[in-house]
């Protein structure tokens, strides 16, 4: 059930940043992702939508090495990364956020970012040096905290932050890796209107010069940010195109938007 790519526009006219071909994942006989083709054009913001259980997070886990595909290939800027480990993929310039906030509860936001910046810069294996070396990343860490609105909370353990602040830190961690491709899994999940709008603004800012793929259930977010939308349903690509195209697609209306009250 592979729709032709031509709804997206002529392929090859722009560089493809992230691409999947025939990607499938089976969990003990249950196929969570089925033969998915995906092309994310460099510089675009691409939304991945679909009902709960459609396989969006599983697809992210495949793209970032947290799960190994049963079949299919993944390339980043033409380079095959199929089967690579998450940390290797992070070093290929692909960073992700987690749907369920995944932080170090005992570390402060500043320590999170110092750790993330060191992760990219290297030097984490130095067991013979003082950990004050991490302070060299402090300037950049504080800039990032400022950027996501956590400047005043730099020294509070992450476990004590409010939900919205944790989501902001999650975002800052992705930004700290200065990735070419960002995968954001439900960046606005559980947020109030104000936080949603701030997140939209933030994603729009950081999307300049990067490629972004995000999952979101909120059609306001999808409509405001996405250049292209891929609709996933029961692990398969149901439709793809611009937001307008997808929103008016009969199958999508019937299968997804019809049963969903957002929009």
């Amino acid at each position: 059930m592979n729709d032709p790519q031509d709804t997206v526009g002529p392929p090859g006219s722009r560089t493809v940043a992230l691409s999947a071909r025939g990607l499938s994942k089976e969990f003990r006989g249950f196929r969570a992702v089925k033969d998915v083709d995906l092309d994310v054009v460099e510089g675009e913001v691409h939304a991945l939508v679909g009902p709960n259980g459609a396989g969006k997070t599983t697809l992210f886990n495949l793209l970032t090495g947290y799960l190994k595909p049963t079949s299919g290939t993944i390339t980043v800027h033409g380079k095959d990364i199929t089967g690579k480990e998450p940390e290797q993929i992070a070093h290929e310039g692909v960073a992700r956020s987690f749907q369920i906030t995944s932080l170090f509860d005992n570390l402060t936001p500043r320590e999170h970012l110092e750790l993330a910046l060191q992760g990219m810069a290297g030097g984490g294996m130095r067991f013979w040096r003082s950990d004050s070396l991490l302070r060299r990343h402090r300037g950049r860490a504080d800039e990032l905290l400022e950027h996501v609105g956590l400047a005043g909370l730099a020294e509070r353990p992450a476990g004590e932050l409010a939900y919205g602040q944790k989501r902001a830190l999650e975002m800052a961690l992705v930004l700290a890796l200065d990735p070419q491709v960002m995968l954001l899994d439900e960046p606005t999940a559980g947020m109030g209107r104000e936080d949603v709008d701030r997140t939209i603004e933030l994603v729009r800012q950081v999307a300049a010069g990067r490629t972004v793929v995000f999952v979101d259930h909120n059609m306001h977010v999808v409509g405001s940010l996405a250049d292209h939308v891929t609709v996933l349903m029961s692990g398969e690509v149901l439709a793809r195109g611009t937001y307008e195209q997808v929103r008016n697609d009969e199958r999508v209306v019937a299968a997804y938007l019809g049963e969903d009250t957002h929009a």
Partner: peptide, 19 residues
């Protein structure tokens, strides 16, 4: 050390440390 910091991170949340 920097290594010790990473170690604690891998203990508390290995998935994020890999990310």
């Amino acid at each position: 050390s920097p290594f010790g910091r990473v170690l604690v991170a891998t203990r508390d949340n290995p998935a994020r440390a890999r990310a």
